[in-house]
Simulated scan of single mutants.
Amino acid sequence: MNEDTPGAGGGAGPGTVRPGGRTARVREAVLRAAGDALVERGFGGVDLAEVARRAGVGKTTVYRRWGTVPVLVADMLAEMAESSQPRADTGSLDGDLAALAGLILGTLTDERQGPLFKAVIATATGDGPTAEALHRFYRVRITEWAPCVDLAVERGEIPAGTDPAEVIRSLSAPLYYRLLASGDPLDAAAAKRAAAATAVAARAGVFVSAA
């Protein structure tokens, strides 16, 4: 699920290759420390030296590998994409969309992941590199889940020409709206409604590309 993440000094960026051994442990510790700082203090309160201290690694390691806070946040998003659950294949569009809604709900209501997403999204509104990293994260997620829509077309459940990305955005949007804007309950009932409404709209041809 990775895409290349730009590094501070060019070449392959952090998150491009899944490291092993000590390198993997260092990355995990640094990203967790950065996430904690981001949740506690916001983007402006994240300091690479402090992140290194929290992670128990040398400052030189953090500065050499990540270089800037936006690159560190970008790698954090890459790691989230790497560790997220794989696409469901239930054999029906309704089942797949319900699984996706449940996955989104579980992420956004997680005691760590929920606040972390809020902090990253808030940062992305005013920081270009973080915004691009967030956009890349969601492009990767949409790409992973697009086959559930393509398979539904093959099974004849929904019309040919249905745009998978639009289907997935339609399902996700009301859940993120509850998280970030309305303050309405973000619960299993909301996830169920989002999945059901998206499935109905897809069968009605709402997401068929104009072209």
Rank of each mutant, 00 (worst) to 15 (best):
M1E: 12
E3Y: 11
E3R: 14
D4A: 14
P6V: 09
G9R: 15
G10D: 14
A12P: 15
G13V: 06
G15C: 12
T16Y: 09
R18C: 13
P19G: 10
P19E: 05
P19A: 12
T23I: 12
A24C: 09
A24Q: 10
V26M: 12
E28L: 14
A29Q: 09
A29T: 04
A29L: 06
L31R: 06
L31H: 07
A34F: 08
D36Q: 15
A37R: 10
A37F: 00
L38H: 02
F43H: 13
G44Y: 00
G44E: 03
V51Q: 11
V57Q: 06
G58W: 05
K59C: 07
T61K: 01
T61F: 08
Y63G: 04
W66F: 15
G67K: 01
G67H: 02
P70F: 11
P70A: 00
P70V: 09
L72I: 10
V73W: 07
V73H: 00
M76E: 10
L77K: 02
L77P: 02
L77I: 05
A78I: 08
E79Y: 09
E79C: 06
A81N: 12
E82K: 08
P86E: 01
D89S: 14
T90A: 10
G91Y: 08
G91S: 09
D96R: 05
L97S: 06
L97R: 01
G102L: 05
L103W: 05
I104W: 06
G106D: 03
G106S: 02
D110N: 11
E111T: 11
Q113I: 10
G114S: 02
L116Y: 10
F117G: 03
K118G: 11
A119M: 06
A119T: 04
V120L: 06
V120K: 02
T125R: 11
G126R: 08
G126V: 07
D127R: 09
P129H: 02
A131P: 03
A131V: 05
E132K: 13
L134K: 01
L134R: 05
H135W: 13
H135Y: 12
F137Y: 14
Y138W: 15
Y138N: 12
R139L: 12
V140P: 04
T143W: 06
W145D: 04
A146D: 00
L151P: 02
L151M: 11
V153F: 00
R155D: 08
E157G: 09
E157D: 09
I158D: 08
P164R: 03
E166W: 04
V167M: 01
V167A: 08
I168Q: 01
I168R: 01
I168M: 04
S170I: 03
S172V: 08
S172R: 13
A173R: 12
Y176H: 15
R178H: 03
L179K: 01
L179I: 03
L180T: 04
A181T: 11
D184T: 11
P185N: 04
D187H: 00
A189T: 13
A189R: 06
A189N: 07
A189Q: 08
A191R: 00
A191T: 00
A191L: 02
R193G: 08
R193H: 13
R193N: 12
A195Y: 00
A195K: 02
A196L: 07
A197D: 14
V200A: 14
A201M: 04
A202R: 01
R203D: 02
G205F: 01
V206I: 05
V208A: 08
A210E: 14
A211H: 11
A211I: 10
A211N: 15
A211V: 13
